[in-house]
């Protein structure tokens, strides 16, 4: 019988994690603004475990531009970008540099690129609050 159980639950704390606020704020943007100004507080989310797969972090310096990550990305979220660096000496051929650009808006967080990267240039952070109305927003492109 549930009758007994529901009466017990009535006096128990709700199971729900009230992230980010107990009730939906009147205006989401207004709420975010208040939080940024320090006038309101976000109820923290459930902590993420150590192996959590969140937003990708890219170490541009160590990347050699091999393009393996581009090949295995199931969502085709990674693009290989070539830059031409003007030579320091007159007459020399321009140096070509290959780096990647990651579109987080397309990322499916499988972490396959992290596994295959020969230089360990990629890693996953625990950042997951990535909702945005623009999938090409600056925060959603890692390069």
């Amino acid at each position: 019988m549930m009758m007994h159980e529901v009466l017990k639950l009535l006096f128990k704390k709700p199971f729900t994690n009230k992230f980010p606020a107990k009730y939906a704020p009147k205006s989401t943007y207004g709420f975010i603004k208040l939080v940024k100004e320090g006038k309101a507080q976000i109820i923290p989310p459930v902590p993420t475990p150590p192996k959590f797969r969140g937003k990708l972090k890219y170490d541009r310096e160590s990347c050699v531009g091999c393009g393996l990550c581009v090949k295995v990305c199931p969502a085709k979220a990674i693009e290989l970008v070539t830059y031409k660096e003007e030579p320091k000496e007159e007459g020399a051929r321009p140096k070509i540099i290959r780096k990647i650009r990651i579109y987080i808006g397309r990322c499916v967080y499988c972490s396959q690129c992290v596994d295959i990267c020969p230089r360990n240039s990629l890693s996953m952070t625990d950042e997951f609050l990535l909702a945005n109305e623009d999938k090409l927003a600056k925060e959603l492109i890692v390069e």
């Binding site: 475990p49 192996k51 959590f52 797969r53 499916v108 967080y109 996953m124």
Partner: peptide, 23 residues
């Protein structure tokens, strides 16, 4: 939560690989 701890995400576990598992 257990699945999230073991694989890194609650729903898409991304743990299978040919010849074994990833984690």
């Amino acid at each position: 939560d257990l699945i999230e701890y073991l694989t890194g995400n609650r729903v898409t576990k991304a743990i299978m690989m040919f010849g074994g598992v990833r984690r």
